[in-house]
Write a protein that binds this DNA or RNA. Sequence first.
DNA 1: ACCTGAACACCGTTCAAGT
DNA 2: ACCTGAACACCGTTCAAGT
Lengths: 222, 222
Amino acid sequence: MPEPSPSPAETKPRRRAGRPVGSVLDQAGITAAALALVGKKGYDGLTMAALAKSLGVAPSALYNHVGSKDEVLRLVEENLMSQVDSSVFGSMPWEEAVKAWAYSYRDIFSAHTPLISVIAVLPVTDAPQTLAMYEAVTEGFLRAGFPEDRIIPCIVALEAYIFGAAFDATAPADIFDSGKLAESTPHFTAAVRSLGPVNYPSDLAFRMGLDALVAGFGALRS
Amino acid sequence: MPEPSPSPAETKPRRRAGRPVGSVLDQAGITAAALALVGKKGYDGLTMAALAKSLGVAPSALYNHVGSKDEVLRLVEENLMSQVDSSVFGSMPWEEAVKAWAYSYRDIFSAHTPLISVIAVLPVTDAPQTLAMYEAVTEGFLRAGFPEDRIIPCIVALEAYIFGAAFDATAPADIFDSGKLAESTPHFTAAVRSLGPVNYPSDLAFRMGLDALVAGFGALRS
DNA sequence: ACCTGAACACCGTTCAAGT
DNA sequence: ACCTGAACACCGTTCAAGT
């Protein structure tokens, strides 16, 4: 093995210290690399060191483009938000559109639940993709006849439900197995058994809750 | 300052190495200390080192009683679950009981959102307090006339909503301030403004969503 | 059995030095 | 301006040594 290959994935001549001719990094590239890394190794694998390695730079180089790891997470979140399908509000009646939007939203974030804690506290200011989604959804609600002052609460409640359901979607199939404590919780254990062979009811539950929310909120239209 | 006071909060004679006469630690004490630490410093302050210090032991001593930090989190979670008021199902009609339970559940976990990621993946096996809560809720649904095979999906959906809402409850008041991007999101910005001086609608939203879920699910009773 | 104290492999982040 | 490389203060966890 005469080749020590100390550089990352791709075998590059390896950069010396000093400013490179053209900038090697930018926020878009960092975001894409972070997304790829998360896809391969999950959020536990998303470290500044691993991210830098996948980009072929030293960890400290990242800090010329982002202020912190938290900013990387915000960049990823913005990217995901732009993937949520809110175009449905322009092409479907309200009930169907909210449901399609909600499914899209949940499906995307169920693979990114560690971001949810970040999003929840994140002011929407300067998060253009997130704002664009809210704008599209708000427009959809307005066109459907919702009173203006009810729209934000409806969206907030739907989002809460969607985020919570995103966690469920990643839960193991046997999460409700009561194990050796089964006898002390007879009603619960029987209720779980009554679900049949598929004992994790995540999808059924999501549909039922979404239907209830949509029906309840739909009644607010004038 | 002749007193260096190298020991933690309380000034103890300081233990030498070797097995102490009586065990200094146990899971209950660790859980209580973790809860107190979180209350004072938040989840960022809950480190094994800080936890050990608050208990007056070396960090490694903790590992005689818990397998990992994750187990500490599970112990805390179990403690919190036991605080959720599910006795309401024995003393109120179903609609009021679910709502009271949901408020209690959300209020407790809104101060402990970092646990939610842990709970979501956590099988209920050997989590007796959590199981006890599910048992009480299941019984409440049964008495209210729910078909057995709909109960778990209802609970799952309600829990998803409660967990999501717990995140909301910790969000800053100006989370929906669209800032300099306000003009590009006119409908959303107007909808936010229409909420009036209190521009964070967390509580209104929670009530609206909960009402919708309870109304929708309540119709399943026979 | 259950503690201390040293050690390990990692983490995010800072900063001087280099071009 | 934007990189490298060394350094810092921390993290969770392991383990020999002590009683």
